[in-house]
Design a protein around this nucleic acid. Structure first.
Lengths: 147, 147
DNA sequence: GATAGTTGACATTTATAAATGTCAATAAAA
DNA sequence: TTTTATTGACATTTATAAATGTCAACTATC
């Protein structure tokens, strides 16, 4: 079980393989990334590397764009509604100065969160980021925090 | 104060006046409505009538489309994340069968909510609908319920 | 009762977001 | 050490969402 998860998260595909698996161009993949839709692993040589979980995440994004007709800015805005502050239980002081809490239009993992508990975290490893590798989870999380 | 609110909500503009105030065509206005973005008042003769609050609401929608580049389906999906169940405090049983709670991609006010407490409500009069006549309130509500 | 505005349905146009193309520098593999 | 892949930056193309056009039946206003 744990092994499977590890291997799902292991970044093993270069960008060309990821593009092939997703049936899209390398270009498009890099555009999505530039928009902040996802964060691939980067080797020390600055080359991108994708895990199976990354591929699944991007499938969701693709589906949102192509089937659900949600624009990239729409997806970013939806991600910005994820109640990250509840997931990571950050302090009131952190929230006051955190773009992820205050901001609109961009997912929290697009910001650098200076002077907060997220400052030195790698968002790719964060629960906020990882809980949404599957589609349609945003509303589920909103439901769960409103108990 | 109350007078001002009443007059803000009073449907006084025919569709042509609303279109002029918003600098858009009657066509576009009716398209947005068909998509479920808003619910104008309808006279018994089936003619639409818009209040000042309606105009403000549609300004927000316009801004989302034109400035923020969020597609109509994106806006619908964002509206579908409004935790209506918290606003109206509906029962667990109602939630189980309510599209507004279960569904994705459409605002709750697009559904007919059969066999729920919303069944015979006019969504145009509902707090869920009215709390979002101002822009950017969705995240605020998500914050407020996660206290 | 004549003129102007509204409705819904279907068709067409346009604006632009999304997707590719090109290229020179850098890194990996063969 | 030559070939193949990746990077970022800028330019161009294309697919299609958003916006209009048209029309015949219905409603309001004068």
């Amino acid at each position: 079980m744990t092994e499977i998860n590890i291997s799902n998260k292991e970044p093993i595909f270069p960008i060309s393989a990821a593009a092939k698996l997703l049936n899209i161009s390398v270009h498009t993949l890099r555009m999505y990334e530039r928009e902040g839709l996802f964060i691939p692993y980067k080797k020390d040589t600055n080359q991108r590397s994708y895990s199976k979980a990354d591929i699944e995440r991007i499938k969701c994004i693709r589906n949102a764009i192509n089937e659900s007709k949600i624009s990239i800015n729409g997806i970013k805005t939806i991600y910005s509604l994820i109640p990250c502050w509840q997931v990571i239980k950050c302090s009131e002081e952190d929230r006051k100065k955190c773009e992820g809490y205050i901001g609109h239009g961009k997912p929290c993992w697009s910001y650098s969160h200076p002077n907060t508990m997220c400052e030195n975290k790698n968002c790719r490893e964060c629960d906020v980021y990882n809980n949404f590798s599957e589609c349609g989870k945003v509303k589920e999380l909103i439901k769960s925090i409103s108990r």
